[in-house]
Structure formats: C-alpha cells, structure tokens
C-alpha cells in the first residue's frame, strides 16, 4: 500500500492489502440445516480468504456444534488439512458432559488445532454459567485460553448478565463476545470497557450501521475483533462496513489485525504472516 493511500482506496483497488492482513476470529465450516451456504467447504473458504487478504479464520465447524455424534473430529480434520489457513475453537455442548470430559482429556493432543473453546449456549439451551460446563471454564482459565461465546441481547443463556458473571469469575480466560450481545449494544460496550479480558466481536454487527462507531467511542478499537461467521458472510462485505464506518485507519488496523494478532500470538507459529504472504504470492503468481 502506498503511504498516502487510505485503507479504503487500497481495499477497493485490489481486494486485499498486504500490510493490513485481516484476522477473522469468528468462523464456522460445513453445511447448516437452516440455509444453503455456497462456499462452506474448507477449500472454498480458503479461496475466499485469499481474495480478501484474510490471514486466518479461527472457526468451529457446524458439525462440531450441532452433531454430538460427529463432534470436534470435524475441527481437527479441517485444521490438519489446511494448517496455514485455520485454527479451531473446541466445541462445547453442555447437554453432553461425557463428550466434554472426553474432549478435555484429549485437548492437549491438539496444540496445532485448538486455541480454546466455543460456546453456542442459546442453541444448546445450557447457560454459560451452568454447572455442566464449569469444568470447561476452569480448564480454560488455568491455561489462559480464548473462548468464543455466541452472545445475544435478552438471552438467559448468553446475554450480558452471563458474560459479566463469567468474566469476573475466570479472569485468565480471554472472552470473545460473538455478535457482541446483539441488540444490547450499550451493555456489550460496557462489558468490554469494564473487563480487561472481554472483547467485542463484529459478526452480524456490521449490518447495523452505527453500532461499530459507538463501540469505538465507548470501548475503544483496542477491544474490538473482526469476525464474519464465514462461510456465512462475505469478507469484502464486512470489510466494506469497517471501511465505511467513521473512524481512523489506525482504529481499522486494530480491528482487522492488531488485536487478534496479539491474542493469537501464544497459539500460532511466529512466521504465520510470512506464510500468508507466501500464499498470496502463489495465488497472484
């Protein structure tokens, strides 16, 4: 990127910006019962990533979240097939303590796969604070892991109240509020400001214009992470929203890569972005 060129102009010109990689901290993979997703296979997702300069998607496979009989094997297989593109959150479904116990026991066998856990409490109807998932929180707290939670305004399972309780109880866990307590935007911003271990995440936030500007104003761009629910949402669509929001390019860089790079540092090889540049060279060559 030329020094004088804004990120907006650079993304419109090429589709990606070499010195502004995008870290997508909220992804999925595979088919979903309620919708038809054109690009949900890992190879299709990887191709989409190249076109938008996405350095990594940290994801949790739909099958791992929705089908206990498949479980986290879907995550492990995908990351091991595409180790330069993906890392995974280990799915937690509180309805199946036996599966949780098995996954925790096996967790350390996959340092190349997992960065932490993913909760989908609204869907599983097991609150973040439920006793059935306590061991997961203790495990994550001991190891200082990342946890991506589906969060939604008004929810009794993963609303702002549950997030606050978990944030206070497990300060060593880095909590990513997936969808930023959708609808209860002010409370989400307050949580991110109050707790050093709580981050806002932008999946399904960016189709509501104005929310992101408020997050930057109230919580600061240092507490915001980019995410797309990929393969649901198109990266350029969400990148475009960040480019259209009123903020500085410095704020945008925090959101696109600086914050996530810092959080993922313990889990990724040091040469991660160098690998990405090699990928870009291969694609454009």
């Amino acid at each position: 990127m030329r020094e004088t060129q804004s990120l907006r102009d650079a993304f419109f010109a090429r589709g990606f910006v070499t010195d502004c990689p995008v870290y997508d901290m909220h992804g999925h993979m595979g088919p979903w019962p309620g919708s038809s997703l054109p690009r949900c296979a890992p190879e299709d997702m990887a191709y989409s990533m190249e076109r938008a300069g996405v350095a990594i998607i940290v994801f949790c496979h739909h099958a791992a979240l929705m089908s206990p009989d498949i479980g986290n094997r879907a995550n492990i297989d995908a990351v091991r097939r595409f180790p330069n593109y993906f890392r995974a959150y280990c799915a937690v479904n509180g309805n199946y303590p036996d599966v949780i116990a098995r996954d925790l026991k096996a967790y350390d066998r996959y340092p190349d796969v997992f960065v932490g856990f993913k909760f989908l409490a609204d869907y599983h109807r097991v609150a973040l604070t439920d006793a059935r998932v306590r061991k997961v929180w203790e495990f994550a707290n001991e190891r200082k892991l990342l946890v991506l939670m589906h969060t939604w305004g008004g929810s009794a399972y993963n609303g702002p109240g549950q997030v606050a309780e978990i944030a206070a109880k497990y300060p060593q866990v880095t909590l990513l509020m997936g969808h930023s307590c959708h609808g209860e935007w002010d409370k989400a911003a307050e949580l991110a400001k109050k707790f050093s271990n709580v981050y806002l995440e932008l999946t399904a936030v960016l189709d509501d214009r104005g929310v992101l500007e408020m997050f930057v104003r109230k919580a600061g761009s240092e507490k915001i992470l980019f995410g797309t629910d990929s393969p649901w949402f198109n990266h350029h669509h969400h990148i475009g929203a960040v480019l259209g929001a009123e903020m500085t390019d410095d704020d945008r860089r925090n959101i696109f890569h600086r914050n996530a790079r810092r959080l993922l540092a313990p889990f990724l090889p040091r040469d991660w972005e160098k690998r990405k540049r090699c990928r870009e060279a291969c694609v454009s060559g």
């Binding site: 419109f12 214009r209 350029h236 669509h237 475009g240």
Partner: peptide, 18 residues
C-alpha cells in the same frame, strides 16, 4: 439500504465479485 447499512459493504463485495 443506506442509512441502515454501510454503502461500502455491497460496493466492495461487487467490485471484487467473481
């Protein structure tokens, strides 16, 4: 859908669509 959504979202997607 301006002003409810960002103009640049649909624009950037279309500019780089395959």
């Amino acid at each position: 859908a301006m002003p409810r959504r960002y103009t640049e979202s649909a624009m950037l997607q279309l500019v780089h669509a395959e």
